[in-house]
Amino acid sequence: MAKTPTVKSAPAADLPPEISVVVPVFDEEGAAPDLAREIARAFDGRRYEMIFVDDHSRDGTVAALKALEPELPALRVLKHRKNSGQSRAIRSGILAARGAVIVTLDGDGQNDPADGPQLVDALLAGPAELALVGGERVKRQDSQAKKLASRFGNGVRKRLLHDTANDTGCGLKAFRREAFLRLPYFDHIHRYIPALMLREGYRVDFRPVNHRHRQTGQSKYTNLGRLWASLSDLLGVMWLQSRARDPGGADEV
């Protein structure tokens, strides 16, 4: 009797990534290389890619990242032709991503990449309607003024939008790419992803994550600038919620 031929599975390098780690960066020459190495260590053994999206930096961020490509084969670098903001950089990375699961984290190194896999595992272990598992920063390493402003903003947003999120400013999130692409896009959407996921009928969940001191560079946001943008964004998302209609699903007949 002839033996059944053995079918060898394709090596992991030949398979598309399951996870795409998307990192927006702007003038982060000091932080980006070490962050890329940390991501590689955190996701070692998984089918992943990391996509750094440079939002038209004025320093050597792109050159520093490109120099890492021989060392980090999972690294991809995108560069905006003009500065367009954090949310647009995240969206550019997601549009270019090949993984069905997206992990986002800030490019300043304050989010800990080691927490990324646990968010992915929680997402994949949940039901199909669970579309996002977001991080909530514990022992936040920011100035007292920034923490107070964030606490106030999160409280107002949570009360008005009912998005169940205590910390939408945390850049570390894991979510399904398909679900994100169903959301209406606007600038600063990254702070409203939980509310918009709920609007589409998905479920969201949250997990505590580490937060670290910024080692290089400086914050691109001010409390006043965030407040002004948040007011108009909040009104816009409330309007989107008021105009949503849930069909309860669709069945082919």
Rank of each mutant, 00 (worst) to 15 (best):
3 K>Q: 10
5 P>I: 01
6 T>S: 02
12 A>R: 02
12 A>W: 03
17 P>I: 11
18 E>K: 09
22 V>W: 03
23 V>N: 09
24 P>L: 09
25 V>F: 08
27 D>A: 13
34 D>T: 04
34 D>K: 13
38 E>L: 13
39 I>G: 10
40 A>Y: 03
41 R>V: 14
42 A>K: 12
44 D>F: 11
46 R>K: 15
48 Y>P: 03
49 E>C: 06
50 M>I: 12
51 I>F: 04
51 I>Q: 03
51 I>S: 03
52 F>D: 01
55 D>T: 10
55 D>F: 10
55 D>G: 04
58 R>Q: 14
63 A>W: 06
63 A>H: 10
63 A>F: 08
70 P>F: 00
70 P>I: 00
70 P>T: 00
71 E>R: 01
73 P>W: 06
79 K>W: 04
80 H>G: 13
81 R>I: 11
83 N>D: 11
84 S>E: 14
84 S>V: 14
87 S>F: 05
88 R>E: 13
89 A>R: 09
89 A>H: 06
94 I>N: 10
95 L>G: 06
96 A>F: 04
97 A>P: 02
99 G>W: 05
100 A>W: 08
104 T>K: 05
105 L>Q: 03
107 G>M: 06
113 P>T: 01
114 A>T: 09
118 Q>Y: 07
120 V>F: 03
123 L>Y: 07
124 L>D: 01
124 L>I: 08
124 L>C: 09
127 P>I: 04
129 E>G: 05
129 E>F: 02
131 A>I: 13
133 V>H: 14
134 G>N: 12
138 V>S: 14
138 V>K: 15
141 Q>K: 15
142 D>P: 04
142 D>G: 11
148 L>E: 15
148 L>N: 15
151 R>V: 07
154 N>I: 07
157 R>M: 05
157 R>P: 01
158 K>V: 05
163 D>C: 02
170 C>T: 14
172 L>H: 07
179 A>L: 10
182 R>V: 04
185 Y>P: 10
185 Y>N: 08
193 I>Y: 13
194 P>I: 04
194 P>F: 01
195 A>Q: 03
197 M>K: 02
198 L>N: 00
202 Y>Q: 06
202 Y>F: 13
203 R>A: 07
206 F>E: 09
206 F>Y: 14
207 R>K: 11
207 R>P: 12
210 N>G: 04
210 N>C: 10
211 H>D: 15
212 R>S: 02
214 R>V: 12
216 T>C: 03
217 G>A: 12
219 S>R: 13
221 Y>S: 15
224 L>S: 12
233 D>P: 05
234 L>V: 02
235 L>G: 11
237 V>A: 04
239 W>T: 00
243 R>A: 04
243 R>P: 05
245 R>M: 00
247 P>F: 13
251 D>H: 13
